[in-house]
Simulated assay, not measured.
Amino acid sequence: MSTTSLRNSQLEAFDRLLTIMDELREQCPWDRKQTLDSLRHLTIEETFELSDAILDNDLEEIKKELGDILLHIVFYSKIASEINAFEIGNVIHSLCDKLVSRHPHIYGDTEANDEEAVKQNWEKIKLKEKGNQSVLGGVPRSLPALIKAMRIQEKARGVGFDWEEKSQVWEKVEEEMQEFKAEFDATSDKKVDAEKATGEFGDLLFSLINYARFVDINPEDALEKTNRKFIQRFQYLESAAKKSGKKIGEMTLDEMDVFWNEAKNQ
C-alpha cells in the first residue's frame, strides 16, 4: 500500500469512528448518559490495561487497548462539543500546534543535537507556555509517588539541576541508607520514631530512583517486573501445596521454602 493510500485508509477509519460515536451518543442509553466525570475512572482503568499489555509485550492486546483509549478521547470531545466547549478537530489542531512549538529544532531555527538538549528545550518551552511559577508545577498532584518522583527529577534535570556523575548519586544512596539505618536499626530494641523513619525511608527511595535514572533503569517498570515475578512464584507455591494435599496457611515457612525454591527454577 502506498503512503497516500495508507493515509486515506487511516482518515476513512477515523471518519468511521466519529460517525459511530455520533450514532451511539444519540441512540444508546448508556452512551447518552455519560459525562466527563463519569468517564474519568474508566479512562484511568483503560490506561492501566494498556500498561499491562505493554508489560506483557502483547501487541494484539496493545492494539485493542489503544483503540479503547482513542474511543475515550473521541467520547470526551463529543461531550464537550455538545456544550460548545471544543470538538475533536480543536483537540487535534491544539496538539499539532503544541508539537510544532515544542520542536523548534525541527520547525524553527533552534539547534538540538542530542536527546538531552531536546528535553531541556521542551521543559523550558512548557514553563513559558503554561506560565508556571515553578518548573515542577506541571507534575500532576495525583500521580503515584514513585512515578511522581521520576517526573520531578526529570523536570529538574531539564533545567540543569542534576548530579554530574552517577558515582555522586550512589554516594547519596549510601548516605541515605546510613541515615535510615540510624533511625531504624534492625539490631536494636530501641523504639523507632515512626515519623522520622518514614522520612528517612522516603529519602532513601528518592535517591534510589535518582540512581536508577542515571543507569537508564525505569524504576516503575523494574518494581512491576519484580511484583509479577513474586506473584508467579507465589502462585506456583499455592498450586504445588494444593497438589501435595497441604493447606498453605497451615504449612511451616521451611515447607513453603521448598516450593518457593522450586518456583525460582521454573
Rank of each mutant, 00 (worst) to 15 (best):
residue 216 D to A: 09
residue 235 Q to C: 15
residue 247 K to G: 07
residue 62 I to R: 02
residue 257 D to M: 14
residue 114 D to G: 04
residue 157 R to I: 08
residue 86 F to R: 06
residue 209 I to N: 00
residue 42 L to M: 12
residue 34 Q to T: 00
residue 93 H to A: 09
residue 69 I to V: 08
residue 114 D to A: 13
residue 139 V to L: 04
residue 140 P to V: 14
residue 158 G to T: 00
residue 197 A to W: 07
residue 48 F to G: 13
residue 213 R to P: 00
residue 38 S to A: 14
residue 58 D to E: 05
residue 217 I to W: 06
residue 133 Q to G: 14
residue 171 E to P: 06
residue 59 L to M: 14
residue 60 E to W: 12
residue 157 R to L: 03
residue 131 G to I: 00
residue 102 R to D: 02
residue 10 Q to L: 12
residue 122 W to Y: 15
residue 220 E to P: 00
residue 241 A to M: 11
residue 35 T to N: 08
residue 180 F to K: 02
residue 59 L to Y: 12
residue 35 T to I: 03
residue 171 E to C: 14
residue 98 K to L: 07
residue 163 W to Q: 01
residue 151 R to N: 06
residue 203 D to W: 11
residue 50 L to E: 03
residue 110 T to L: 15
residue 99 L to K: 01
residue 134 S to P: 00
residue 134 S to D: 09
residue 130 K to S: 09
residue 256 M to I: 12
residue 208 L to P: 00
residue 172 K to Y: 10
residue 210 N to T: 11
residue 3 T to D: 14
residue 149 A to L: 12
residue 41 H to P: 08
residue 10 Q to I: 15
residue 188 S to V: 00
residue 12 E to C: 15
residue 69 I to K: 01
residue 32 R to K: 13
residue 54 I to W: 07
residue 150 M to V: 11
residue 175 E to V: 02
residue 22 D to E: 04
residue 265 N to K: 15
residue 128 K to E: 08
residue 37 D to A: 15
residue 233 R to Y: 11
residue 183 E to V: 07
residue 64 K to V: 13
residue 241 A to N: 07
residue 157 R to P: 00
residue 215 V to I: 15
residue 80 A to G: 03
residue 53 A to Q: 01
residue 165 E to V: 11
residue 218 N to V: 01
residue 135 V to M: 08
residue 57 N to D: 10
residue 212 A to K: 01
residue 238 E to D: 05
residue 240 A to L: 02
residue 129 E to H: 14
residue 56 D to V: 11
residue 41 H to M: 14
residue 27 Q to K: 11
residue 176 E to M: 05
residue 16 R to K: 09
residue 121 N to S: 15
residue 158 G to K: 06
residue 239 S to Q: 11
residue 107 Y to E: 05
residue 172 K to V: 03
residue 178 Q to T: 08
residue 200 E to Q: 08
residue 255 E to M: 07
residue 218 N to I: 03
residue 261 N to D: 05
residue 78 K to Y: 10
residue 95 L to M: 05
residue 16 R to N: 06
residue 138 G to Q: 01
residue 63 K to N: 01
residue 36 L to R: 09
residue 173 V to P: 02
residue 119 K to W: 15
residue 19 T to S: 03
residue 82 E to C: 09
residue 205 L to V: 07
residue 56 D to I: 09
residue 6 L to T: 15
residue 75 F to R: 10
residue 184 F to N: 09
residue 83 I to R: 08
residue 124 K to A: 10
residue 250 E to Y: 13
residue 134 S to C: 12
residue 33 K to R: 12
residue 216 D to R: 04
residue 106 I to F: 12
residue 137 G to I: 03
residue 92 I to A: 06
residue 83 I to H: 07
residue 29 P to D: 04
residue 19 T to K: 12
residue 130 K to M: 05
residue 118 V to T: 06
